[in-house]
Design a protein around this nucleic acid. Structure first.
Lengths: 236, 236
DNA sequence: CAGTGGTCTAGACCACGGT
DNA sequence: CCGTGGTCTAGACCACTGT
């Protein structure tokens, strides 16, 4: 039983693939210039814009470098960009065949610790809503989430029953963000997270941290800590 | 002193930004359909292909969903894709103002452990070149790398002086890959890595694992372990 | 079937940036 | 200066898919 790619691409994808082949076969050497768009359009018997589309895709993944007048060259160091799907926790859990559930562990309004407020660019002691939640798969801890919300940027959230609606779901529906930053790291489980995730203190956990802004105002900082062993994979 | 974005985009980027604005201002509601391309082309007074280009970009970052006949809709869950730059270690170190250096710690040819060969889809006990290297910033450990190379797929590597040329550099220059997989995770430092990185055993380290194939043949499996505290950030 | 996005074309103008 | 990529256009055909 075969999988799925029996149909060879046509159009601009065929041109992209042919260019890819020439790079991989070293017919076009790393660091060397490749023919210009007009030339390739003639070779492939298509319009220049079709070639442009194909090469633009290759440039987008860092395989070639393009500059006006200088032309296009095969990048000397490929493998430079990777795109990850940022999972919607519920979907991720269900995709793995688990039953999703989530629990609100804590909800406090008060001055945020400096670590949080400074990450968000707010003055020390700024009043924020602090939330802790646990996401479960088949009743077992899957991911622990600690979040600070700036009530100035998201006023309505103070009236929401966050035990029923996840803060994330409410925020994406009600407070559009204009800019965000995502950071991945590894950390040792501290007491809180170890207890929540049911693992030993100090165990290595995979962390995903996000900050979002609306205009210049920081909206939320969320740190998601996955149960030990979590992996994030993508094709390159 | 201002930074750099005083010039508002024009052309398709202007249309993309206007669409973005309508989404963020909830003028186009989450989950709701947006006008079709022809309609928008009229609104903006441009060709349909220009609108197409703009919306395609938004679809690429997961902000809208497009289906023939059904039209385009604002995605219910944004924040779904993030693109990371995969660092070239030397550049990364130098960009942080460090002096780059690397040391080959070990080089062995022999049967690979099952953990490695099975990850690569090779039979247990397959003959492989095993390498361990340490990348340094200003003489201090920055990243530890353990690698298995399949000599069947990359024969020339057995004759290379890998203390001078990094295996990665040699491979990208000499063995094109056709497919790759990248995995991020957190792990506890084992004895080997703790010693190499100069940290305590069990400390949490950020790991990046890559496997590449040429055709159906696996070329290399590399596990890169960063010194504690490493973070990988991107804008979303 | 019919509406929508996906793509291609031939031609054009322009911005950038080597020379 | 002038070659190259970046973009736009108007029109066309097609593939997919909801009805």
């Amino acid at each position: 039983m075969r999988s799925d790619p029996p149909t060879p691409p046509t159009g601009w994808q065929a041109i992209r693939d042919e260019a890819l082949r020439r790079i991989q076969s070293r017919e076009w050497q790393a660091g060397a210039p490749i023919p210009n768009e007009a030339e390739l359009a003639m070779q492939f018997g298509c319009a220049r814009s079709t070639v442009n589309r194909a090469l633009r895709e290759l440039a987008a993944i860092g395989l070639i470098e393009r500059r006006r007048k200088a032309g296009s060259r095969v990048a000397r160091h490929p493998l430079r960009k990777a795109t990850f799907e940022i999972p919607i926790i519920q979907h991720e859990v269900e995709a793995r065949g688990g039953r999703y559930d989530f629990t609100l562990i804590a909800r406090n309004l008060g001055p945020a610790p400096v670590a949080a407020s400074s990450r968000m660019g707010l003055p020390a002691g700024a009043e924020m809503l602090h939330l802790q939640a646990l996401h479960l798969s088949d009743g077992r801890p899957y991911m622990h989430e600690t979040r600070w919300v700036n009530p100035v940027a998201a006023p309505g959230i103070l009236d929401v029953d966050l035990a029923r609606v996840s803060a994330n779901a409410w925020l994406v529906q009600n407070v559009p963000y204009t800019r965000g930053e995502l950071t991945l790291s590894a950390a040792a489980a501290d007491g809180t997270r170890a207890e929540a995730l049911g693992c030993a203190q100090g165990e290595a956990i995979f962390c995903m941290e996000r900050i979002t802004w609306i205009g210049e105002a920081p909206v939320t900082l969320v740190i998601q800590s996955y149960a030990p062993g979590h992996r994030m994979t993508t094709a390159i």
